[in-house]
């Protein structure tokens, strides 16, 4: 098992957002977490990546046999946990390629691999650029600075392609994208699907899942996963909204 979340509780500024999450992800699987606004989707993504603002109050997260919650954010990243940000951050004056090279070398160093020089690195970048259909100008600009919404999301997936994480968490990667941009981003993600990697897609809408077809869909409501199923569950949600799940949940007791 790659990731196992057991009874995870987390709060922000004293308010409990996650109220007992249980989730298992194996290598090669794509899981989708869906849910209405405010259900805790982004909090879950943030807790897994190690964002400071969240306080884990209960539960455990095991990643590749290690206690994930014990690791600093950069250690998680070096161990192969990648978060595609809902709002990618701008870093003025820092060249995107230079930034990625520093990141990749930090990861390689952690794995005991030799750091790449500029020439070797550029070769990787060029290859991934083609794969992701990324414009070269994106490489020479400052990290996310002045990027359009679509460019930012594409850049996130490009980072993912270069860094090759074991577990990629896509936090609302579809938000703010028109249908063409969505397709490009989704194509990029699909090209990165491997049997040794796992992807956790966090999304409000079903439409992204038309392109990134998940193996499992989980419905998150009020800090708990209330329903899990296959890809057809996403379609049901698309058709009927979240209310019917809510009704169903209210009729039967929540599983612990």
């Amino acid at each position: 098992m790659m990731l196992e979340i057991k009874n995870l509780h987390a709060s922000v500024n004293g308010t409990e957002i996650l109220k007992g999450i249980n989730l298992k992800i194996n290598a090669g699987e794509v899981h989708a977490i869906m849910g209405p606004n405010g259900s805790g989707k982004s909090t879950l993504a943030g807790v897994l990546a190690g964002r400071d603002a969240y306080e884990v109050t209960q539960g455990e997260v095991t990643y590749e046999g290690k206690n994930l919650l014990d690791l600093a954010p950069e250690e998680r990243a070096r161990e192969g946990v990648f978060l595609a940000f809902q709002y990618p951050v701008e870093i003025p004056g820092v060249n995107n390629t230079y930034f990625l090279k520093a990141a990749l070398n930090a990861i390689r160093k952690h794995k005991g691999l030799e750091e790449l020089d500029a020439v070797d690195f550029l070769q990787i970048v060029k290859e991934k650029m083609k794969l992701m259909e990324i414009d070269e100008s994106l490489l020479n600009r400052s990290v996310n600075e002045g990027f359009s919404g679509g460019e930012k999301k594409r850049n996130e997936i490009f980072h993912m392609a270069v860094l090759q994480p074991r577990l990629a968490i896509l936090d609302e990667t579809d938000s703010g994208l028109d249908i063409d941009a969505l397709r490009v981003v989704a194509d990029g993600v699909n090209k990165l699907r491997r049997k040794e990697n796992a992807i956790l897609v966090v999304t409000h809408y079903q439409r992204l899942l038309n392109y990134i077809v998940p193996d499992f869909v989980h419905v998150l409501m009020d800090g708990r996963i209330v329903k899990s199923g296959g890809k057809e569950l996403a379609l049901q949600l698309e058709e009927r909204g979240y209310d019917w799940v809510k009704d169903e949940v209210e009729r039967q007791p929540v599983q612990a």
């Binding site: 951050v89 870093i91 520093a102 930090a106 980072h159």
Partner: peptide, 26 residues
């Protein structure tokens, strides 16, 4: 958020600060 973004990509806090500050001075 800038520092966290860098850390999420595998950089240490110190490297993140250096990177951001150097970008500021570019």
């Amino acid at each position: 958020d800038q520092i966290f973004y860098c850390k999420q990509r595998g950089l240490s806090t110190e490297d993140a600060v250096n990177l951001i500050v150097n970008g500021f001075c570019k």
